Amino acid sequence: MTEQSPTPEPPQAAGQVSDAVRGNWVDRLAPAATRPYLRLSRADRPIGTWLLLLPCWWGLLLAMLHTDTARWHDLWIFVGCGLGALLMRGAGCTWNDITDRHIDGSVARTASRPIPSGQVSVTGALLWMAAQALVAFAILLTFNAAAILLGVAALLPVAIYPFAKRFTWWPQIFLGFAFNWGALLAWTAHTGRLEWPAVVLYFAGMAWTLFYDTIYAHQDKEDDALIGVKSTARLFGDATPKWLGRFLVASVSLMGLAIILAVPKAMILALVIALGGPWAFGWHMVWQMRMLKMDDMDRLLMLFRSNRNAGLLPVLFFAAALLA
């Protein structure tokens, strides 16, 4: 019996970013003129959109458990958060690439991005960022006044984050501020006010961000050291697994506390089911730690992307609790 040759990977498309999945929908289906802008928004790498969206869904579902009500408008909040995450992640990534264009050109993994590679001008990127942000703002205006104010306030951490790695070893904290804001916003979009369970859930998401983005940052630690860019991956070094364990415990504990604060004590079955969310979430992070190899770039990227599945686990348990 003859041995079969492995299936070859699809050829790299012209202008493709180095860490995008080969044969992604942007390279295969998008009109050629739009591809540099879609790559600028990371549309060819959807994991960031998921990581921005999932805390929104956590906040919405936990708010629905808190009030024990579900309205048709909640369906729009659910969908609107998805559209807003796609647009604001795109706008945020565009802003990040504008501010980092000189750094990106010096890092092997990011040198192929649209701005440092010359596919998109800075002016074109600014216009593209504004267009995405304006459409996202239009969606935000369909929510209540308190949620609109929170949405506008979210621009501050988004604006600061690209500069954080220049002045702190903890830029992942600033990413956490920005990426988990949706937990506050979606809760408020349902309830009309910001309350403690949403704040605690927000900090659970921040600990999660520190977990997954430290794994992600290990891909760039050598280039970052050469150009003087700071990160938790460089700060922790060989102690990274110990710190990941701390972030895991903080994230799971805070999510559990948020659920206890949110779910009425009379809803015992719903409370028990919802608490399965952080339990499953934590076990997924334990699996990531067991699989971790800090000098295996492919493994690091795979583990980072697996956090979509980790973040979906609480969504499933919260949704099940609503049906209890």
Rank of each mutant, 00 (worst) to 15 (best):
A262F: 12
I47Y: 10
Y37A: 14
S106P: 02
G23T: 11
A13D: 11
A310P: 08
L62S: 06
G124H: 12
P11V: 07
G311F: 01
I268L: 08
P55E: 06
G192P: 10
L86Y: 13
A136G: 10
W128E: 09
T67N: 13
T69M: 11
A225G: 12
K265N: 11
R22Y: 12
A266G: 05
G105P: 12
L184V: 00
G151H: 10
R299P: 00
D224M: 10
V272D: 10
A217Q: 04
Q288V: 08
A183D: 00
R113Y: 05
T142K: 11
R89L: 06
D19K: 07
P36T: 06
H218I: 04
N309K: 06
L201K: 02
M297K: 08
D104N: 15
A159E: 03
I47L: 07
Q16P: 10
T2D: 13
H73T: 15
W283I: 03
F203M: 01
L61V: 06
C56M: 06
D295M: 02
L53R: 10
A186H: 08
L140V: 09
A159S: 10
R193T: 11
G256C: 09
A189N: 09
I103T: 07
V79S: 08
G311K: 07
F236W: 15
P55V: 03
H284P: 12
A145L: 13
A225D: 11
A111P: 04
N307W: 03
F163A: 05
A153F: 12
L301S: 06
A133F: 14
P162M: 02
M294F: 04
I160C: 04
M285S: 14
L29N: 05
F203W: 14
W279A: 15
H66T: 06
L316S: 03
S41H: 12
D97Y: 01
D97M: 02
G105F: 13
F174T: 00
L185P: 00
D74S: 14
R35L: 07
G84L: 09
W57P: 12
A147W: 02
L127E: 09
G59N: 12
A164R: 01
L87T: 04
A233P: 13
L87K: 05
C56F: 08
A63R: 09
G90T: 01
P46W: 11
L52T: 06
P162D: 02
